[in-house]
């Protein structure tokens, strides 16, 4: 894959890899929620502490919300901070859902921190994070 990223990595080895991951993560978060302030709390991220198979890691995200027309979560975003690309999924929620809860399965290349963000209809963004250890990486093999 010859991309701007790989050219940059060649030019800036060896520090580029870590810096690029951070930049890609920041860009992905900005793409998801813009410049809205992010606060911790009001959202729970449930994951196993240890994933034997990084290819199938169960994840549950639950935000506190009555899910009414007046007060509901509009989106949940999932990021894997140490994957080759940090984006996992974004979910658009509506008040037809009884709870602001989504369960999914994700890929993790290595042990890392997961970040989930929930946006509500008043523009607030909440964050939860979790560290997961991974026995067998699920992205590149």
């Amino acid at each position: 894959m010859t991309t701007r990223r790989s050219l940059l990595a060649l030019a800036l080895l060896p520090a580029a890899a870590a810096a690029d991951t951070g930049t890609a993560l920041q860009a992905a978060i900005r793409d998801a929620v813009g410049d809205a302030p992010i606060t911790d709390g009001g959202i729970v991220l449930r994951v196993p502490a240890m994933a034997e198979n990084g290819g199938q890691v169960p994840v549950t995200i639950v935000a506190e919300s009555p899910m009414t027309a007046a007060d509901h979560i509009t989106a949940i975003h999932v990021f894997a901070t140490a994957n080759p690309t940090p984006g996992v999924a974004r979910f658009r929620l509506t008040p037809l859902l009884a709870r602001a809860e989504v369960q999914t399965r994700i890929r993790l290349a290595e042990a890392q921190r997961i970040i989930v963000l929930a946006q509500s209809n008043d523009g607030r963004v909440r964050r939860a994070t979790a560290e997961i250890r991974v026995t067998t990486g699920g992205c590149l093999t």
Partner: peptide, 11 residues
């Protein structure tokens, strides 16, 4: 009800 967009990290 729900609209999901998947990126590389979805299993």
């Amino acid at each position: 009800v729900l609209a999901a967009e998947f990126s590389n990290g979805t299993s």
